[in-house]
Design a protein around this nucleic acid. Structure first.
Lengths: 177, 177
DNA sequence: GTTATTGCAAACCATTTGCAAGTGT
DNA sequence: ACACTTGCAAATGGTTTGCAATAAC
């Protein structure tokens, strides 16, 4: 019940990191986060962490659970725990949610990775990342005028990717929104 | 089964409308849309249309269904029909979906209303609209570089509204993402 | 030894859908 | 008459949660 920050190993200089400099590994970051909450780094959480950061791809809870289940010698992790842990990792600043037009919550790395947004193809559903500092700047300006304090944003740009905008377009069951 | 555009009353100059000029009422637009699809403007759809355009507020399917149910002399409209019609109205270009961080799909007018985006307060959940043409321009540029063909976007800017960023902040159960 | 954590299965919950009855043209 | 529509209730489907068993510190 002690509210002071007694357990805070290595004060990491957050905020203005140069878009590439990673001060600590995702694992360290997670450990730090868990410590400050009196939570534990269990085998399950560790396995999830490994799987999540094994590649820089977008994924959803279900996929992740399936991937974990198919790892040969690893700990079994229930779907429930996967979802619970994903929530933790979002709170810890390791992951970020990126909505997709079909109800599934899609995640991506948010730690040690520069801010970016996405193009989302209405046909094939592919996510294409892009970076543009001007957008954040504009948002800050507009926010100031509205006395709004920005802490983050989610920008989804819909349309057709180069593959799907070719002459002979195929029909896919994906035209929501 | 005739694919020609036989029923197209009043060719409306879409696209570059001056942000205020409304060429036809939402009802006309819906009728036109339904006609081209061989669909009907039923009492239920009509009632939903009225309710939807009775105020320029954001709403979700559930809310709308409840509102409709509480209208004294009006037709009863089932929840299922409300959802079905909302989908139609999105396709017709009358409504647009604006995601909210809690799973419910939020709608807003998209016809006769200028393109805009939203600030979303993490504390009170309020949606504040703002307009900024520069953002769309930037997106077009970046998209061109990525051979992506933009058809629309959804930008949600999270943070604190002026009310909630005052010194003594209250605690609310709303801190997702 | 506590207290946090997990797995399971059931619960959630907004939205969708099958189907038989009803309605618009 | 012939689709298109509706309402109802059941189904969906990703995500969450209650609870007893289990593991971490």
């Amino acid at each position: 019940m002690n509210p002071t920050t007694e357990a805070r190993p290595k004060k990491i200089p957050e905020g203005e990191l140069p878009a590439v400099a990673v001060s600590a590994s995702p694992r360290e970051k997670l450990e730090e986060f868990l410590a400050t909450r009196g939570l534990r780094l269990t085998q399950e959480r560790s396995a999830i962490l490994d799987e999540v950061f094994s590649s820089h791809l977008h994924f959803d809870g279900d996929e992740l659970a399936t991937r974990l289940a198919s790892r040969p010698g690893a700990v079994r992790v229930s779907r429930a725990t996967v979802y619970r842990t994903l929530r933790l990792m979002v709170e810890a600043g390791l992951l970020r949610r990126v909505a997709r037009p079909n109800g599934r919550e899609v995640y991506e790395h948010d730690y040690g990775y520069p801010q970016h947004d996405h193009f989302i193809c209405r046909v094939c559903g592919e996510l294409i990342e892009f970076q543009n500092g001007a957008i954040s700047e504009i948002l800050e300006e507009v926010a100031a005028k509205n006395s709004f304090r920005v802490s983050g944003h989610r920008l989804e740009v819909y349309g057709l990717c180069s593959k799907c905008s070719r002459p002979q377009r195929r029909h896919t069951k994906l035209d929501l929104l």
